[in-house]
Structures are given as C-alpha cells and as structure tokens.
Design a protein around this nucleic acid. Structure first.
Lengths: 180, 180
DNA sequence: AGAGGGATGCGTCAATTTGCCGCAGCCCGC
DNA sequence: GCGGGCTGCGGCAAATTGACGCATCCCTCT
C-alpha cells in the first residue's frame, strides 16, 4: 500500500459531494488530504502549508481551474497538479498541461488513476494497481450515472447531453449496473 | 497575419496525399514548406537546416510521432511543433504537450488553425471551455485509446483487458474517431 | 378549468452493431 | 521450420439501437 505522505493532498473541487468523497477515500487510503471548494480557499490552503500534490477540478463554478494552475505553481513551485474534469476536451487538456499541470484526467476516474498520475512514471508498489481497467460497459455506466445526477435525474435531458437516444438510455438504465 | 518566414515549415506525415497537399497549400500561402514521409526523413531534414516550425502527424505508420517530439527538440531546441492527428485522444494530447509539443490538433483541420497554432505561443488566449460532457461514444473512444496505449498498441491484449470482443475492437478502431 | 409543453414508460419493427466462427498472412522465439 | 500469438477481414445469426407512436402525468400560463 502507498505509504502515508507527510504532506496532505489538496483537493480543489466545487462539488461538495465529490470533494468530500475524494478526501475521505484518499484518507482511508492512507493519504492525508484536505479539500477546498473554491479557488481562493485552495490558494489559501496551499499558501499556508507545504503542499506537493493537488487535485484540481476545472469547473470551479464560474471561474476556470485553468487559471489556478499557474497561481498554485507560483506559491508551490514543486507542486504536482492533476487536473480533473467532467467536461474534458482536448483543447483544455493541452492548455492545462502547457500551464504546468502534471496530468489531465476525465471523470469518471478511479482513485488509482489519480494516485498513479502523481507518480507519473514508477509504480513501485504492486499492491492493487494490478487491477484491470474498467470495461467500456462499466465506464459507460459510471459516466451515465454522473451526467444523470448532474441533470437531477432527468432522463430526457441526460440523453440530450450525452447525444444518445432517449429510448436507448431508458433501456440501459433498466438493465443492471454492468459489472466491471 | 502570417508573413513569409525565412525558414520552411517541415511537414512530417506518412500520408503522401495529405502531406503534399499540406505542403502545397502552405507554399501557396507564402510559407516555405517541405515534407517528410517518415520520422527519419523528418529528423534528417530538421538536422540539415535551421527549422523552427514542424507539423507532425502522430501516426507515422507503425512508429508513433510521439517519440519524435523530443528527438526533434534535441536537434532544434527552439522549434515549435504542432501535432496533428486523425485519431485524437486526451491521453495522447497530454503526452504530446508534456514532451514539448506546442499544440495538438485533431484532423480534419484547416490551414488557418495550423498557422494559428504556431503563433499562439502566448497562452493567455481566452479559453473557451465549458463544453458539454463527453458523449458516451466519445468517452468510450478516449478510454479505448488509453488502454490501447497502455498495451503498446496490442489490439488483442486491449480487447482482453477491456473484456470486449477483439473483432468489435477492430471494428471500432477502424471507424472514425467519434464526434463530440 | 383547459390548453400547451415536457417527461416517462413501453411496444414495435427495421437498421445497425455485436458476438463468434473461420482463414490466411506475419513475425518471433525455440 | 514449427508453434503460438497478433492482425485483418468475410460471413451470419443474435442482440442492441434508432425512430415512431401512444397513453399517462405533471407543470405553468391563461
């Protein structure tokens, strides 16, 4: 198992649910972690302590997390920043990396992937990183759930956002959550 | 806007049609340009002359253009590299930029966009993100690309990891990169 | 109350997309 | 030179999707 790091991982994400879930999961995994719901809070936390790992959501309601990257790096030059977003696009990925992000991941993403992103290269602990990638079906299920929640359970709206047929979405939802 | 540059733009793309078309178009636009169909040729050309702008295709049949980026930069440190690919994915985009690419564009792309990509060095252009969430098809594509890369392009292994039929994977890959 | 406008759940049927062969060509280690 | 794994592709039956239609519901505006 990955050993506890002396410095906490800072999670900056304006979604309270996701944020606390992530912080809790990281903690349970043995990584100190703290969350910030806004960019300002994030910067404040980063300034107040040594900080070498940040998980940053791109959509901090309204303001873009993109702008936060150089600001964080100005405060903590050696900090590694993993950008996370539910609205991934190649353009923002390129921009994020240019601004100094270490990695750019699209939600839904597993804890594994986030932790691996910080390490970026060597994966010394063959603990449970051996797990297989999500099957496409499973990934699809996760994504659908996310967008569905984002649209307050509105199936029609979700189908539109996902550019898929409403009937098809209905049928998929009717089926069991697909196994991994 | 784009004035004639003393140094030619180097186009590295293994598709002869696209390559010569691009070279011709660039030339007609007043930009000196020359093409290379393989990575080796590209490196050779870059070594033989000053070169500050390269258009690089990611799929140089077989070998990945990704590896070429650091090699080009080793020869021409100040060179700007715009990566171009018909099979764009976030994972390769991130990797390309980390390796030093200036921009990463998905085909089909207009000449305008390529030329603009060379100029946009100052990365303070107003980012227009706020896209919609990935469509499930798009998400699937991204995921497949990631796992495929993880397995060094091995289709059979990828299909196994993804628990999907090899034939199906083949068919999906044969199709265009899915739209938005 | 009554008239939209949107969401939902479902049935049907045709068009696609899978799953599952099989085969031939390649490349590589033994 | 052989066995074994990978690749591309043809073909076909089975499963899934796309496109419609229809009967509720639930709101909101008039």
């Amino acid at each position: 198992m990955s050993q506890t790091s002396p410095m906490p991982i800072l999670v900056i994400d304006d979604d309270p649910t996701f944020n606390s879930l992530l912080v809790r999961t990281l903690t349970r995994r043995g990584h100190a972690a703290c969350g910030a719901l806004t960019g300002e809070d994030g910067l404040r936390l980063a300034a107040g302590q040594a900080c070498e790992r940040v998980v940053l959501d791109l959509n901090l309601d309204g303001s873009s997390g993109l702008a936060l990257i150089p600001e964080l790096l100005a405060i903590q030059p050696d900090c590694r920043i993993v950008v996370l977003t539910g609205y991934a696009s190649i353009a923002t990925a390129v921009e994020a990396v240019k601004r100094g992000a270490t990695q750019y991941l699209a939600k839904p993403v597993e804890i594994e992937a986030i932790l691996a992103a910080f390490d970026d290269a060597p994966l010394d602990n063959p603990d449970e990183l051996a797990d297989e990638p999500l099957s496409v079906d499973r990934l699809e299920w996760e994504h659908i759930q996310r967008i569905l929640a984002e649209h307050a359970g509105n199936i029609s709206a979700t189908a539109r956002a996902l550019k898929m047929h409403r009937r098809t979405l209905q049928r998929k939802l009717a089926k069991r959550p697909v196994r991994g």
